[in-house]
Design a protein around this nucleic acid. Structure first.
Lengths: 97, 97
DNA sequence: ATAATTTGGTTTATAAAATAAACCTATCTA
DNA sequence: TAGATAGGTTTATTTTATAAACCAAATTAT
């Protein structure tokens, strides 16, 4: 009936991060922060969770002497996202064949 | 960019309850419990939250001498669900016009 | 009759999660 | 060289989800 929803993706901020990375393929921390409206602290924690799960990679480099954190989605992350979307449909496609 | 997700609906169990009530229009507590696989305790708590928000009504009657709790969705609940689905699309419709 | 079981839940306690506040380091700028 | 700013991380707090414990009435078994 209802398919389980990956708890890692069923979170407003983490879902937004994943969504951004799917379309952008690569994004810097401040950009994600701006687009999601999240605080840096919250974003840092959620990025780390997605990274720990292998859904994204986090590269820490420098950009004109300043630290620069770049996030990218992984194949596993993309797969998980697609699975999540399919699962969601079992809740949303009410009364549809 | 990303529309906020009603925290009351962005919950696996509560979303399942709402989904059931949208298609069934009326459902008894044990039926919801069976369809969602939730424990009675958890279900009781989440039903109460939806009820407190005015998203569903909870009628406590009797059915051949035994207590029978019937849940129904309200117009406000239906509206909230539809709004939630629209908001979700801002996260899911990646790269779509 | 009454003891045990089942039904239909609610209340309370615990575990997990989200979120922000406080903090740190390095670089700019006045 | 004293702030101010950028770019985060760590830690603490609040909220939420979840299950365990509990309760009452009705049914079934002894």
């Amino acid at each position: 009936m209802f398919q389980p929803l990956d708890p890692l993706l069923h979170s407003e901020l983490r879902l937004a991060i994943m969504s951004l990375l799917i379309s952008a393929d690569e994004a810097e921390f401040p950009y994600i922060k701006e687009q999601t409206g999240a605080t840096a602290g919250n974003l840092s924690v959620q990025v780390e969770k997605l990274s720990a799960a292998g859904y994204i990679t986090v590269e820490k480099t420098f950009k004109s002497k300043r630290p620069c954190t770049i996030c990218r989605i992984t194949p596993a992350g993309l797969k998980a996202f697609e699975t999540y979307v399919q699962a969601l449909k079992s809740y949303l496609e009410v009364g549809k064949a």
